[in-house]
Amino acid sequence: MKIYKFLEEGRPQFGVLEGPATVRALKKSPFDGPIEPGEKTWPLASLTLLPPTVAHPRIFGVGFNYKSHILETGRQLPEIPPLFMKPDTALIAHGERIVYPEGSTVVHYETELVAVIGRRARNVARADALAYVLGYTCGNDVSERTIQRQEMAMGIMTIGKAFDTFAPIGPCIETSVDPSKLRMRGRLNGAVVQDCDTSDLLFGVDALVAYLSKSITLMPGDLIMTGTPGGVGPLRPGDTFEVDIEGVGVLSNDVVAENT
């Protein structure tokens, strides 16, 4: 099942995909209980999409979680997930524009699978962890590397990941895929620059949900950006970046210079 969030008469609305190109309204948010289809329908192409989550989710990121990416950086495999957080002001939807910060010279794309938490989770066993995930969406963990490298030299990772528009997700939540066996591709201006399978993850979605929930109560709509494979590289104003995840969808965002 594919769940979309979009604007309807100026207000957010959730719906589910019917057939190849029609979205049917949901009676309530999928984060508020069982999914109940409503009466109204719209052509998918006519909708203004929103990030498919709650209004102000927490966004957890994982660094160095694909073996291919760890190897290209020359690091050792971490013993626990290297975590950071992005503010909800970084969140944008499919089709919205990534803003290249004024004064920046090194901004990178990062193709990622994003797990969307569906219900409250605290101290969850790994064997039960996926039952707390509503589904999965595409994400791009956009990163300002100059600041990030300065921060990492001090043992932190905050502002380099946190700029406004640096967390595109979408276009929808897919509820019926196996997160351990998905092909992911990142395309820069139509050319494939990242190509990997989620089987390369060091810490899978189940492990991440279990680890986080031991200390943090995960809430419906929280997002876990699970990490990027090898092949990260620069974005520039005028570029278009696409995150294409098997069975989930394609997230596409143009890049524009700040103050344009």
Rank of each mutant, 00 (worst) to 15 (best):
S213P: 02
V205I: 14
E96Y: 08
K5E: 02
F241T: 01
T137G: 04
S104Q: 12
K67N: 05
G227Q: 07
G61F: 09
T146K: 14
V243E: 06
T111I: 02
G139S: 08
G15V: 00
W42C: 00
S68F: 10
E36H: 14
L251N: 03
G10Y: 13
K27H: 11
R58K: 14
G155T: 02
E151W: 09
V99K: 13
T198S: 10
G139C: 05
I156D: 07
I3S: 06
A131G: 15
G221L: 04
G233T: 01
T226D: 10
V142E: 07
F163V: 00
V124L: 07
I147A: 13
F84G: 02
M154D: 12
E242L: 03
I92P: 03
R183T: 01
E144Y: 06
G160W: 09
P229W: 09
E18S: 08
L83A: 03
G190Y: 09
V232R: 10
G95P: 01
I245Q: 05
L7Q: 12
R24T: 00
D88K: 12
V232I: 14
A129T: 02
A125L: 14
V23T: 07
I173S: 09
G247W: 13
L77C: 04
P57G: 06
Q194D: 03
M157K: 15
Q13M: 13
F203W: 11
S215W: 15
V62A: 08
D244C: 08
L44F: 02
A162K: 08
I156Y: 13
A90T: 04
I147W: 15
A25E: 11
H94T: 00
N189V: 00
K2G: 01
S176T: 12
L130W: 13
D206H: 11
L26K: 06
Q148L: 13
A162E: 03
F64Y: 15
D200S: 03
V114Q: 09
L235T: 04
G135N: 07
K181L: 10
T217Y: 12
Y100R: 05
V232Y: 08
D206V: 00
E36D: 13
G10D: 05
G204L: 01
T165L: 06
R126V: 03
P34L: 09
P220C: 08
L44T: 00
G221C: 04
V250F: 06
F64M: 14
C196L: 05
I98W: 12
V243Y: 03
P43Q: 05
V243F: 05
E246A: 03
A210C: 06
G63P: 00
G231Y: 04
V124F: 11
C196I: 01
